[in-house]
């Protein structure tokens, strides 16, 4: 097997290693494919669908699709941008996201994605579901109102912490993140040092008592759009 393959993304030829996903190959080449559930330290699962690209005419999640020599990938077409916008809108209306009161504001990947896409208000009606807030753990807060079901916490606990604190329960619209305890997060073996405590892209899993240590306005995405770190590789 050759140690390099060539794929085309939006007409640009890029070199990739066999075994890489389209997303990884694009990142290395400085092409940003928007994503939310994907995280470089975790196995990809393709649940948010924001990274959907068109591969040889078929929609595929770039985070899970391995590269193959000669693949032709479309990433930045008006059609794809519209689908992605729609998906991000769906995430906003399925939960209860109040950016202006959320301690994650400025560091939140969902919020940053919305800004990148120029979303000022969702086009879909808010569903206002009733969700729980689990404050039982001494150091960590679990606010289901802000969950986007990316399952990063599930994977981080298993893959990075060697535990099994989280898992998806229920199905459909009622699906949610469950915890491995009789009642709540406080009953689990989750520790403040767990990687799973810092992996949430939104404000669902946050550390207590540090929410506003860094002022709003000086946070990660306050100064530059999400994805710009990847795009700078190209420059």
């Amino acid at each position: 097997m050759s140690d390099s393959v060539t794929i085309t993304i939006d007409g640009r030829n890029i070199e990739a290693r066999p075994g890489q996903t389209i997303l990884e190959a694009a990142d290395a080449a400085g092409i940003y494919i928007p994503r939310l559930c994907s995280h470089p330290d975790l196995k990809p699962i393709g649940s948010c669908r924001v990274c959907t690209v068109v591969v040889d005419g078929r929609p595929q999640a770039a985070c899970v699709k391995p590269v193959m020599d000669g693949m032709v990938v479309q990433n930045s077409t008006p059609e794809l941008l519209q689908h992605r916008r729609n998906i991000v809108d769906m995430m906003f209306v399925e939960g209860n996201h109040f950016c202006m009161f959320c301690e994650k504001s400025g560091n939140c990947e969902l919020q940053a994605m919305a800004y990148r896409f120029g979303i000022t208000a969702p086009q879909y009606p808010f569903q206002f579901p009733e969700k729980e807030v689990d404050a039982s753990h001494p150091d960590i807060l679990l606010d289901h109102n802000r969950c986007i079901m990316c399952a990063r916490c599930v994977r981080a606990s298993q893959e990075l912490d060697g535990k099994n604190v989280f898992q998806s329960i229920g199905r459909g619209f009622a699906r949610k993140i469950g915890v491995n305890g009789e009642r709540a997060l406080g009953d689990t073996d989750m520790a403040a040092t767990d990687k799973a405590a810092d992996i949430c892209p939104v404000g669902c899993i946050v550390r207590k008592r540090v929410g506003f240590e860094k002022p709003i306005g000086q946070r990660l995405y306050d100064t530059r759009p999400i994805g710009s770190d990847i795009e700078e590789v190209r420059a």
Binding site: R49, N86, M90, E94, R171, R175
Partner: peptide, 21 residues
């Protein structure tokens, strides 16, 4: 479909609810 979606991915979990209503 709303009833039977597993809820794993966003478009199916949320989109079907929006379509239905």
């Amino acid at each position: 479909f709303v009833e039977e979606s597993c809820g794993y991915c966003v478009p199916c979990r949320v989109g079907n609810v929006l379509l239905r209503s």
